[in-house]
Design a protein around this nucleic acid. Structure first.
Length: 240
DNA sequence: CGTTCGATTTGCT
DNA sequence: GCAAATCGAACGC
């Protein structure tokens, strides 16, 4: 079976800018590993998503988000996340027990997908955590693109480099064609959207950086909590 | 039922 | 660096 080239360009002809990146931001160079088909890579399962949102947010870093459209894989390594804690968290859509049609997916079992439309323009994708009825989630904020790069550039014509493809929560949903149709789907069993466990151990503590969450200044004392997690020095983290 | 405003991105000043 | 885009949820009257 023939291996797809990186963005359709043979390794030897590829500009350095379009070389695949390692998880830690260094150029990885030509790598079969990145482009192999992974039929046997296990997904993260129910047990994983049942964890609390902070530990899920940390352990999601370095794993691979996969979207399948018409049998084609669009995928990237998760490099940035934010935890939204639940009814006590002023910045969470479930704050104060709000349970509306929009956020009802947050009340489903951990492993459910929660997608919503933000600013009337951008879809944002979350992973629901904990058990049914416990409305916590992890926002996926940035990916390091690894498969389906051609299609991602088509979806995001403004993008000049691979870095522009998925370095923000609205960008990555556009690149991966994630919209409200994915809301409420099950990451554990859906053939169209899931997360592959490509590393068994969580990233070492010293490669993860934290900060306050983005765009929630209104959330009073919750605005400053270190609930944003990202891979240190990774160029695909948002705001670049 | 009307108003306000957002878990953002982009393009222009 | 700043404001527009754009729509539906949330909330107040």
């Amino acid at each position: 079976m023939k291996k797809p080239g990186f963005a359709g360009i043979p390794d030897k002809n590829r500009p350095a800018e379009f070389m695949p990146q390692s998880r830690f931001g260094q150029p990885a160079g030509p790598s079969k590993d990145l482009f192999k088909n992974y039929p046997d890579i296990p997904r993260l399962g129910e047990r994983f998503y049942a964890g609390d949102p902070i530990s899920v947010a940390r352990r999601l870093l370095g794993q691979r988000l996969v979207r399948v459209v018409n049998g084609n894989r669009l995928a990237g390594i998760i490099v940035e996340t934010e935890a939204y804690l639940g009814i006590e968290d002023r910045a969470s859509h479930s704050f104060a027990g709000r349970h509306t049609p929009r956020n009802s997916a947050m009340y489903q079992r951990g492993g459910t997908t929660y997608v919503f439309l933000n600013y009337g323009i951008h879809h944002l994708v979350n992973v629901v955590t904990e058990k049914t009825g416990q409305p916590s989630a992890v926002l996926i904020r940035a990916l390091e693109p690894s498969e389906g790069i051609d299609a991602m550039f088509q979806r995001r014509p403004q993008a000049q480099t691979i870095r522009d493809l998925c370095s923000g929560p609205g960008k990555l949903t556009e690149a991966l064609m994630i919209d409200l149709a994915c809301n409420g789907s099950d990451l554990v069993s859906s053939p169209e959207l899931f997360i592959e466990q490509i590393r068994k151990r969580r990233l070492p503590e010293n490669s993860i950086q934290t900060s306050s969450r983005i765009g929630i200044a209104y959330a009073a004392e919750w605005a400053d909590k270190p609930l944003r997690f990202f891979i240190k020095n990774n160029p695909h983290v948002s705001r670049g």
